[in-house]
């Protein structure tokens, strides 16, 4: 359970408090992963944190992580520059159902940094574009300068994603949507009963997103969400990430919504 050394080869600032890192394994052995999985990431002795993998599953040579500096461990990671080595354990957890939803329309619903764990799914869907119906990204952020991957949003749009972006607040120079991300659902016209959704963002945002999707006619069993709990060991041993009858590090982070919904209705579960 000792972390494997990965060297930072690229560090890119996404927003005021968020950076994307490309890491190469010192061992030379690529970290194979499935879209949706996470690793336990650490810098020096500042503690480990679960961070979703943001790279392309078809290109595992570089491990890509988008990290927001919100605490001790994530600040230590975000302070690290190219050439520095980070510790990596994993990958852990369940995957987005990229293969299972073939043939359907797919909505990717992302809120804030929640786009990062969805990026591998997005790339997999685009790499197999012909296998799906309409692909729609609904991405909500706090403000235009807090949006992740702005260059890629345009690229994804060119390659067959309908990219809808909305922010909670903006100046008049912003030409995109302003408003909560759930309003994008009401505006989209999809064949909802044959639409799958993959959601990642703050839990409140996902709850309301699901409500909006179901109101439109989407089926709970076609909705998937990536959950956040206090994952510490990644291997189902430490107990911290319990979510009712499940362990998020083992049975999640990606869950089918219809299985999870009754549990999320319980406060402080």
């Amino acid at each position: 359970m000792v972390p494997e050394p990965f060297e930072i080869v690229v560090k890119r600032r996404d927003t005021t408090d968020t950076w994307t890192f490309e890491l190469e394994p010192r061992s030379g052995e690529p970290l194979q992963f499935a879209a949706g999985q996470f690793t336990m990431l650490s810098a020096g002795g500042a503690g480990e944190v679960p961070i979703s993998i943001s790279g392309d599953p078809d290109r595992p040579e570089r491990l890509v992580h988008t990290v927001r500096a919100v605490g001790l461990a994530t600040r230590a990671i975000c302070d690290a520059d190219p050439g520095r080595v980070l510790g990596v354990r994993g990958p852990f957890g369940t995957a987005w159902p990229v293969d299972e939803v073939r043939g359907m329309d797919v909505v990717i619903g992302a809120g804030g940094i929640g786009l990062a764990p969805l990026r591998p799914a997005l790339m997999s869907l685009l790499a197999r574009r012909e296998g799906y119906g309409r692909l729609v990204l609904m991405y909500g952020g706090r403000s235009p300068d807090q949006l992740l991957y702005p260059d890629e949003l345009a690229d994804w749009a060119d390659r067959g994603f309908e990219v809808l972006v909305t922010v909670d607040s903006a100046g008049p120079e912003w030409l995109g949507h302003v408003g909560v991300v759930t309003r994008l659902v009401r505006r989209a016209e999809l064949d909802w009963t044959a639409t799958a959704a993959m959601l990642c963002g703050p839990e409140v945002m996902m709850r309301f997103m699901v409500a909006a999707l179901v109101d439109q006619g989407a089926q709970g069993e076609n909705i998937y969400a990536s959950m956040e709990r206090n994952m510490q060991c990644g291997i189902g041993h430490c107990g911290h990430c319990q979510l009712g009858p499940t362990l998020v590090c083992r049975d999640g982070p990606v869950y089918c919504w219809s299985e999870l919904a009754p549990w999320l209705a319980i406060r402080e579960l």
């Binding site: 810098a43 520095r84 510790g87």
Partner: peptide
């Protein structure tokens, strides 16, 4: 669980 030296580059 383990003990390691922290190198200049942050690696263990």
């Amino acid at each position: 669980l383990w003990r390691a030296r922290v190198d200049q580059d942050g690696g263990l």
